[in-house]
Design a protein around this nucleic acid. Structure first.
Lengths: 213, 213
DNA sequence: TCATGTGAAGCTATTCACAGCA
DNA sequence: TGCTGTGAATAGCTTCACATGA
């Protein structure tokens, strides 16, 4: 076990490296240097080397990193070696799109259940998974050993739904709801709000950052 | 004009403040202190004060910030006072979900056009907007004075589509495609990849960060 | 020679702590 | 008193530069 904690900012870059390595591996590229990888990703080589060095010595001097090996190591660090069981709460268009994408394209995550409160949607199939009623969340989370939740309900329902999920024992939540929520101690919560991204883009296009670079 | 450049990390927090202020304003809350706002958002009060102070003096000593006034100021800083014209490229489930959400719920952005290359989708209506063919992108971007683009095409089409968009004069792009791409100098590019978020969550749930907090 | 891993330097961001004002 | 705005202090992150090894 490591003695010191690794900063979140480093952990958040690992998936970026992983995404590129997976692509390179599929292309049959055998090795890559921190310089080349950094160039592809817009990241300084020294940063890549330091990030990786927190977790071990994965490279070979004079050569670089063996793509397939490094990919495996990062997957191991991130805990992606066996499928992670995910629940999606909210079976609207966004919930459906995300579920289908994960089911079809991602081997690292399993959509173990989808929930909604609308009786019209309950029973429906999304990518081969039946939509359950939100009232069954606790039961299903326990039966299916769900570890992670994705929230795609409207802003006004988000806090309530997230409370349910935390009560049911889910310890990691990714929310797409455009609202600030609180979660109990011990639950890790990330918010993906694309309108916030659009708004910060706007700063540089039409706002006070216009013309800056 | 400001003499020094404001760091991107500060700009990215403004939409967070804005989102909360909009909510508070709707609730009729007249004023808020940096302490209260920070508590709601999980941000230190001193950080909020410093962030805002880069742009002006918006608060009143002994009172705090006038919610509606501060909201207006941040909207002004971000350049959200008149609708921003956006193109969505990719009319699949995700593109549809995002377009409909923006059309229905966001007053700061206008979906001026939606593009796809699939003849089946071209001509279709999404939230009242007709889907155009990707080949017409340049023409429509110029006619409709589109400033910003959202990319929701699959990974293998993303670089090509993004090249088209940059050629057509779009200067800000938000991509949901899970792949690294390059854009020419002068184009601001953000990538929202929720699988990267899931993977960093995994680090804390099943990976080497398990148990850390 | 080429490229890693790493201590040290340099830089950026956050937090503190308090003067100043309503 | 209560809270902002801000210089100073601290903490954290990135980059440099080079010893080391293949």
């Amino acid at each position: 076990m490591r003695k010191y904690k690794i900063s979140e900012i480093v952990v958040k870059r690992l998936p970026l490296y992983l995404r590129c390595l997976t692509y390179l591996d599929k292309m049959g590229v055998p090795t890559i240097s921190s310089h080349e990888l950094g160039h592809k990703l817009g990241v300084k080589p020294s940063q890549i080397r330091k990030d990786l060095a927190y977790f071990g010595e994965f490279g070979k001097q004079g050569i670089g990193y063996e793509v397939s090996y490094l990919r495996g190591e990062i997957r191991h660090i991130l805990g992606l070696t066996e499928h992670i069981r995910v629940a999606v709460v909210g079976a609207g268009k966004l919930g459906q799109a995300l579920s289908e994408y994960i089911l079809l394209k991602r081997e690292d995550f399993d959509i173990a259940a989808i929930f909604d409160r609308d009786p019209q949607k309950v029973g429906m199939e999304v990518g081969g998974v039946k939509v359950s009623h939100i009232d069954d969340l606790r039961k299903v989370v326990q039966e299916e050993q769900i570890q992670m939740g994705i929230v795609t309900v409207p802003a006004n329902a988000a806090q309530k739904v997230i409370n349910f999920m935390c009560d049911a024992g889910i310890q990691g939540i990714l929310s797409f709801a455009p609202i600030a929520v609180t979660v109990p101690e011990g639950v890790r919560f990330y918010n993906v709000d694309f309108t916030m991204e659009l708004q910060s883009l706007a700063y540089y296009l039409t706002g006070q950052g216009k013309g800056e670079f």
